[in-house]
């Protein structure tokens, strides 16, 4: 939204505020850079893809994941504790007749600790205003045309829980390894605006 001039202006203001807070003892030298590096090394959609692939090959894990995702995540070496505080994760599974899709209508809540930052469209008023009211047409705009008989469930992340969609395993993938299956899973699949 900023042009180059606006961008350099706000950039200077941010640096100024950082220096001010350092001088007042509210920031440590290097603290911001450390946080940026930690964040870059943190959540990514690949984490969600690993969770999904494990659930596709291991029914026991799938059951545990859907019952209590926070307790199941350590089985694949993951947790929801990477953010400001550990957050509750609820995984919702697509089925033959139901499809789940996530939104935060009030702000932009998203499982950042697990999946990294959300895409800009997820944070946009355009998506947040419409998906809760008319999810079928929004999903169609994303290229996901659901059969009329598929029930759509929208999850509005309005409080402390974060959500992730468990897509359906595509047909014809019986011969793939867990790693290959993970490679099929997209961020949009984890949000519910794509089938996988």
């Amino acid at each position: 939204m900023s042009d180059d001039h606006g961008s350099s202006l706000i950039s200077a203001r941010v640096r100024h505020v950082e220096a001010l807070l350092e001088s007042r003892g509210l920031l440590d030298a290097g603290e911001i850079d450390t946080r940026i590096d930690e964040f870059a090394a943190g959540g990514t959609p690949a984490n969600g893809a690993r969770v999904v692939a494990r659930a596709w090959v291991d029914d026991g894990f799938r059951d545990r994941l859907l019952a209590d995702a926070n307790a199941a995540l350590p089985e694949v070496g993951l947790s929801m504790a990477g953010g400001l505080q550990e957050q509750r994760l609820k995984v919702v599974a697509n089925g033959p007749d139901e499809h789940h899709v996530l939104v935060c209508t009030l702000c932009s809540c998203y499982p950042i600790a697990l999946l990294g930052p959300s895409p800009s469209w997820y944070k946009s008023e355009a998506y947040r205003s419409r998906v809760v009211r008319d999810p079928r047409s929004v999903l169609a705009e994303f290229g996901l045309d659901l059969p009329a008989g598929t029930r759509i469930e929208v999850w509005d992340a309005s409080a402390e829980s974060r959500y992730m969609v468990l897509p359906r395993r595509p047909e014809g993938t019986e011969g793939l390894t867990e790693d290959q299956l993970a490679g099929l899973v997209t961020r949009k699949g984890l949000i519910g605006t794509a089938a996988v």
Binding site: R133, D134, R151, W155, A159, E160
Partner: peptide, 23 residues
């Protein structure tokens, strides 16, 4: 805190989907 599911019809007057809000 609860997950509360609403029928879209009960929120907007139409729609065949569900909306779950955490309250």
């Amino acid at each position: 805190v609860y997950h509360v599911r609403f029928a879209a019809r009960d929120l907007f007057g139409d729609g065949d989907h569900g909306v779950t809000v955490e309250l």
